[in-house]
Amino acid sequence: MGGRKSWRDMSRRQRITFMAVGTVQMAMLGAAQRSISKTPDAQIRGKKAVWRAVCFINLLGPLSYFVFGRRRDVA
């Protein structure tokens, strides 16, 4: 089984992948937090505070907010 690798033990490709995934994760977190701030309560399913906390769960949090947290059509 693979153990934890230090930065020096990673290949160049692994380092680039690690940085790319981290950048995407931070960008999605920022976009989700901004969306939560700007979106009225009526257009969000559930409480804003809960979605803010959920968004800090790696990539799945912001993805779940964008897929399940926003209402598409508000009458």
Rank of each mutant, 00 (worst) to 15 (best):
G2E: 11
G2M: 12
G2C: 04
G2S: 11
G3K: 10
G3A: 07
G3P: 00
K5P: 00
W7M: 12
W7P: 01
R8C: 03
R8G: 13
R8Q: 11
R8K: 12
R8N: 14
M10P: 01
S11I: 06
S11A: 08
R13S: 06
R13F: 01
R13I: 03
R13W: 00
Q14T: 02
Q14M: 01
Q14N: 01
R15E: 07
R15G: 06
F18R: 12
F18T: 11
F18V: 01
M19W: 01
M19P: 00
M19N: 05
M19R: 11
A20C: 12
V21W: 07
G22H: 08
G22C: 10
G22P: 06
V24I: 15
Q25K: 10
Q25E: 15
M26F: 11
M26T: 14
M26I: 15
M26C: 09
A27V: 14
A27W: 03
M28Q: 10
M28A: 15
L29Q: 14
L29S: 07
L29I: 13
A31P: 01
A31V: 04
A31C: 07
A32R: 05
A32H: 04
Q33C: 00
R34C: 02
S35V: 10
S35G: 12
S35Q: 15
I36A: 06
I36S: 06
S37C: 09
K38V: 02
T39Q: 09
P40Q: 11
P40Y: 05
P40S: 10
P40C: 10
D41E: 09
Q43M: 13
R45P: 00
R45G: 02
R45T: 08
R45L: 07
G46Y: 01
G46D: 01
G46I: 03
K47A: 13
K48N: 08
A49M: 03
A49Q: 07
A49S: 13
A49N: 05
V50I: 14
V50N: 11
W51Q: 06
W51P: 04
R52D: 00
A53Y: 02
V54H: 02
C55G: 12
C55M: 04
C55T: 15
C55S: 15
F56H: 14
N58T: 13
N58D: 13
L59K: 12
L59R: 12
L60I: 15
G61H: 03
G61W: 01
S64H: 04
S64W: 09
Y65K: 09
Y65C: 07
Y65L: 15
V67M: 11
V67S: 08
R70P: 00
R70H: 02
R71E: 13
R71P: 03
R71C: 05
R71V: 12
R71A: 09
R71M: 13
R72W: 08
R72H: 11
D73A: 09
V74C: 07
V74F: 04
V74A: 08
A75L: 10
A75E: 11
